[in-house]
């Protein structure tokens, strides 16, 4: 409306997180890992199922975190890639009888392609405009999955039922427990890959783009390539998470992959701390358990209670779980000095 708007100071959408602050220390990692291995041995099947859910949703949040926290691009379309991954896995398992562990890499590759292609038009957009474009993808996906000519494979509106795999080699484990450990291995592998990715040349390129696109291109970073690459990697990881969810829930239907899912993943990222990879699991815990807690407090007002809890979290720790971790670290450091 006015001429002053022409020059606006670069307003950082995503704050710059140094790459060392993106991960956990070795000691803490080992403790968390041991906990993740030990807990299911003492838990009921339903709890194990919830933990599995925690892991694969955490993985999906991690994927968004790489995209937003790493390369500074924002996406509301993660539910679309999650849905593609889930459907690829389900269709391959049920219609073509391919073993589940082979379906996941395929889901990842398909989603990488989809993400990379979608990254092309998204290249010219940033901020709100990118949010709208990805949002369009998220709203289109359930409709696309319902299309008539795909119904032969996808089962249309009805969806597909997926059989739960048994533990292999006659291991004395329930299906839920086996699936938990399987998920844990996949998630760990991807977590380690992501940490290394962000520490590599490509990771530094992502962060340079996030912090200042113009400066990055002046330093010789191929902005277009790395931006689409970030989209592709993020989509691939989301797709694997979707595939894991299809196996764990034993069911896929178009309406499980709506914009609501994308919003949940977004909330998970904010609560976990944008750009802090271990926070993804905290964020996933928030989106799984807090709605249940809210429902427990008041049935009729569960949405309002959820909103109030969310407000509390963002007032207390606007930078999410990362802030808590940093505080803890400082406290530990002070104790060590004394």
């Amino acid at each position: 409306m006015s001429a002053v708007e022409d020059v606006v100071e670069g307003h950082e959408a995503v704050e710059a997180v140094p790459k060392r602050a993106m991960t956990l220390g070795t000691g803490t990692s080992v403790v968390v890992l041991l906990l993740l291995i030990a807990v299911p041995l003492f838990a009921k099947n339903f709890v194990i199922f919830q933990l599995t859910q925690l892991l694969y949703l955490g993985l999906a949040v991690l994927a968004l975190n790489i995209l937003t926290g790493g390369s500074g691009q924002f996406s509301l379309g993660q539910s679309a890639f999650y849905g593609i991954g889930a459907y690829v896995t389900a269709v391959m398992m049920e219609q073509f009888n391919i073993p589940y562990f082979l379906c996941l890499p395929v889901a990842g590759v398909v989603c990488f392609g989809a993400g990379f292609l979608f990254g092309q038009p998204a290249l010219r957009l940033s901020g709100v405009y990118l949010a709208l474009a990805t949002f369009a993808l998220a709203t289109a996906m359930p409709q696309l999955l319902k299309l008539n000519f795909l119904e032969k494979w996808t089962g249309g509106v009805q969806g597909l039922v997926v059989t739960k795999p048994d533990a292999p080699f006659g291991l004395p484990m329930s299906q839920d427990m086996w699936l938990y450990y399987f998920t844990l291995v996949v998630v760990l592998a991807i977590y380690i890959f992501s940490v290394n990715l962000l520490r590599s040349r490509s990771g530094r390129a992502f962060m340079a783009i996030r912090d200042n696109e113009i400066a990055a291109s002046a330093m010789g970073v191929n902005v277009a390539l790395y931006k689409t690459l970030a989209f592709g990697v993020s989509a691939a990881i989301t797709g694997v998470a979707g595939g894991l969810s299809a196996i764990a829930v034993q069911f896929v239907a178009p309406d499980s992959f709506t914009i609501t899912l994308a919003i949940q993943l977004f909330l998970g990222m904010v609560v976990g701390g944008v750009g802090w990879l271990p926070g993804s699991i905290v964020g996933a815990a928030f989106i799984i358990f807090v709605p249940n807690i809210a429902e427990g407090i008041s049935k009729g007002l569960s949405g309002a209670v959820f909103g109030v809890l969310l407000f509390l979290v963002i007032y207390l720790v606007p930078h999410g779980a990362r802030q808590v971790a940093i505080l803890g670290q400082q406290l530990a450091g002070r104790l060590r000095k004394n």
């Binding site: 944008v274 909103g307 969310l310 963002i314 930078h319």
Partner: peptide, 16 residues
């Protein structure tokens, strides 16, 4: 607070 935190606030307000 960061912009994305504000967006989360809008979503919370929506729910409430």
């Amino acid at each position: 607070a960061p912009i994305l935190t504000n967006v989360a606030g809008f979503i919370a307000l929506f729910a409430i």
